[in-house]
Nucleic acid binder design. Structure first.
Lengths: 342, 342
DNA sequence: CGGCACGCTGGAAACGATTACATGATCGGA
DNA sequence: TCCGATCATGTAATCGTTTCCAGCGTGCCG
C-alpha cells in the first residue's frame, strides 16, 4: 500500500510538506503543491485514515444506534442521517439494537471504542447504563426520536400530541366510542408519551381508557398481533385500535384478518408513523406522520454543532394526522383540523 | 481517556505485559494477569481500536454497500449481514448507494480508506470502475445479490429462473396471455437476468414478449409507476405485469389504482422479492421470495473465509414463488410446482 | 548594510497500541 | 555445581500520519 513516504520520495520533498500540501492547511509553495499532487495522483495515493485518526484524535465518523432496522421509520431516519452527515464530511456507522437493551449497549460501547466523533441514539431502553455512561462521557451525544429523561444531551424528536388529539377527534366523529391502544415499551419515552397523549385526548371527549383496552406491545409486529387478539376476545371488544407504531399496526391487521373481520367495518385501525406502504394496504391505513427525514437532518446538524463546540440545541418538530380509510369513510364536509386527507 | 500506560502504571507492570494479559496471546503469570484485569476494570480501560488497527493492520470491520436502504429487501439483507458479522466478531459499516453509481464509488472508496478487512457489495452499476478497482486490490470482496460479470470475486446470490418459470405457468394457468415486465437497470445483473428468464419462460408457453411490453425501470417506485402508465396507454394493454422488484410493484399498484382499475380483475400484478407488506396490500401480491437472510449469512461467512485466507466460494440459493391473489383467484386443484400458497 | 519578519521546508516527536528481541530468574539434568 | 532450556517480563521499534519547532533564504525597513 502506497503511503505518504512514497509520495514524498516521488515528489522529492519531505513527508511534512506532502502532508501540508495534501491537507491544504498551512503555506506550501505552488511548485511543491503541484509536484505533490501529481505524485499522489500517479501513485494512486490514498491516505490511511486509521493513522490519521490516531494522530488527530478525530475519525470524522458518527455513530447512529437505532432500535430496529426493519422498521421503515428507522430506515428512513438512517437514510437522511447518512445523507446529511455525508454532506458535512462525516461517515456514519449504524448499529441496530433490535429493541434489545443488551444489543444497544453492545453497539454504543463498540462505537465508543471506535472513537467516533459523536453519537446519535434512539434508546431501545430508557435506562441503559451503557448509553447513560456515553452521555456523561466526553463524546457528544444527541438523542433522536426517543431519549433518556434526566440526561442532559439534546433531543431531536417530533411532538405527536396534537396529531393524536386530531386522531381521537377523527375517530369520535366517525362514531367510535370504545377506543383501544397498543403501546410501545414503557421503558421508551415514545412508548409512554403516545399512550399518555391518547388518554388525555380521550378524556377531552369524555371518554376513558380502561385497562383492558391498553395492550402492551414492544414496537414489533408480533406484539401487535397478540394485543389485538386479546382485544378481540374481550366481551365488549373495542371498535377502534390505535397502534403506537407501524409494525404493530401490521400485526393488528394480521390478527383482524385472521378472525375474518374487516377494517374498518368491524373494527377501525390507526397507526403512529406513516410509511410508504400504508396507502396500499387493504384498506389504506390512517396514520400519524412524522417529518422523519427532517428529524434526521436536524439531529446530524445538532451533533455536528456539538462536535464543533457549539452549545447544545434540542428540537421538537410537529407530527400530523393523515386520514385514509381504515377508520371508516370520513365525512367530506367535516373540518380536518391540520390533518391531511388522501 | 485512560490508556494502556495508565493500566500498566496502576498494575505496576509494563505495557507489554498488560497488552499480553489483555489479549491472552502469550504466557503471562496468573498473578500479573489478575493485577492487570483488576486495574483495567477499576480504571474503566477501553482499548483504542484505532491505534490497534494501525499496528495490526486489521480493523475487524467489514463494509457492506447496498443499492438502496429504503428497499426492504436490502434492509433485511443488511440486518442478517450485521447479525452474522457480529457473531464472528466483526462490525459492519453500511454504505447506501441509492442506485447511483457515483455514490457507490464514494462508499467503496471511503470504506477502503477506512482499511476495512473485507467488502460485501451489491453493485448498483455493473461497470463501476471504483468497485472494479476494489475487486482487483488486496482487500477481499464478495458480491451479494448482484455482481460484476468478469470479475473474479465470489458471488452469493439467489437463482430466480425456476421461480420465474413457475410464475409464468401460474399466470398462463389463470388465462393471462399478454404479459409485460418492468425491468431493473440493464447495468445490473439482476436487472438483466430476471427479464431474460421471463422471456425464456414465456417462449416455453408459446408466448412472446414484444418490446412495448418491456418497461425499463430502475428498481425504484417511481419508475414502476411510469412504466405501468405506459402499459396502460397501449392500444392492447397487457393483462399481467411482472415487476422485477418490490418497489416498482408498489409504483405499478399506484398507477393502476390512479386509473381506477382493479387488481387482478383488470390487470394482474406480480413482483420479484417478497416483503412483509405484500400479504397486506390490496390485493395481497403474488411474489418471488428470496432466502434473503440466508444470503446475508452465507455472504458474511464467505467473506470471513476469504479474510482468513481460505479459497473463495460462490453460492447460489433457490428463490420460490409465493402465490397470493394479485394475479387472480388460483384454482385450488391445480398443482403449484414448488410454489407456496397463502 | 544589518537585522527582523516572513515564507517555505525538513527533521523528529508525538498518537496508543502490538510485538520482536533481550534479559533475568528458575529449574532440571548431567 | 553448572549449563541450557523455559518462562515471565521489560525495552524499544513500529504502524502512517500530523504538527511542533528549527533552519534557511529572501526581502524590506531603518
Amino acid at each position: 500500500m502506497v503511503g505518504i513516504k512514497d509520495v514524498a520520495r516521488a515528489a522529492g520533498l519531505s513527508v511534512a510538506t506532502v502532508s501540508r500540501a495534501l491537507n491544504g492547511q498551512s503555506a506550501v509553495s505552488d511548485g511543491a503543491r503541484a509536484k505533490v499532487l501529481s505524485a499522489a495522483e500517479t501513485l494512486g495515493y490514498r491516505p490511511n485514515v486509521v493513522a490519521r485518526s490516531l494522530r488527530t484524535d478525530r475519525t470524522r465518523t458518527i455513530g447512529l444506534v437505532i432500535s430496529d432496522v426493519l422498521n421503515p421509520y428507522f430506515t428512513e431516519l438512517a437514510r437522511s442521517v447518512e445523507e446529511e452527515a455525508r454532506a458535512l464530511g462525516y461517515s456514519v456507522i449504524i448499529g441496530n439494537a433490535d429493541e434489545r437493551a443488551d444489543l444497544e449497549g453492545h453497539h454504543v460501547r463498540s462505537l465508543m471504542e471506535r472513537r467516533i466523533d459523536g453519537l446519535l441514539v434512539s434508546p431501545a431502553d430508557g435506562r441503559s447504563p451503557t448509553t447513560l455512561d456515553a452521555v456523561s462521557g466526553p463524546t457528544p451525544v444527541v438523542f433522536v426520536d426517543r431519549w433518556i429523561p434526566g440526561s442532559d444531551a439534546p433531543v431531536v424528536r417530533s411532538e405527536g400530541r396534537g396529531a393524536i388529539r386530531d386522531l381521537v377527534a377523527h375517530l369520535y366523529g366517525l362514531g367510535h366510542r370504545r377506543l383501544a391502544v397498543i403501546t410501545g415499551p414503557a421503558a421508551t419515552t415514545t412508548g409512554r408519551e403516545r399512550v399518555e397523549a391518547f388518554r388525555a385526548a380521550l378524556s377531552e371527549f369524555g371518554l376513558s381508557l380502561s385497562d383492558s383496552h391498553v395492550g402492551s406491545g414492544d414496537f414489533q409486529a408480533e406484539s401487535g398481533r397478540l394485543a389485538t387478539e386479546a382485544f378481540l376476545d374481550l366481551p365488549e371488544r373495542p371498535d377502534a385500535v390505535f397502534a403506537n407504531d407501524n409494525l404493530m399496526a401490521l400485526g393488528a391487521l394480521d390478527a383482524i384478518r385472521d378472525r375474518g373481520l374487516r377494517v374498518p367495518d368491524d373494527i377501525a385501525l390507526a397507526a403512529f408513523d406513516d410509511i410508504p406502504w400504508f396507502p396500499h394496504t387493504a384498506p389504506p391505513i390512517t396514520a400519524i406522520a412524522q417529518p422523519t427525514a427532517e428529524l434526521g437532518r436536524v439531529a446530524v446538524r445538532a451533533l455536528a454543532g456539538l462536535i464543533a463546540g457549539e452549545p447544545a440545541t434540542s428540537t421538537v418538530l410537529p407530527a400530523h394526522l393523515v386520514v385514509r380509510r381504515s377508520c371508516g369513510e370520513p365525512d367530506p364536509s367535516s373540518p380536518t383540523g391540520g390533518a391531511t386527507r388522501e
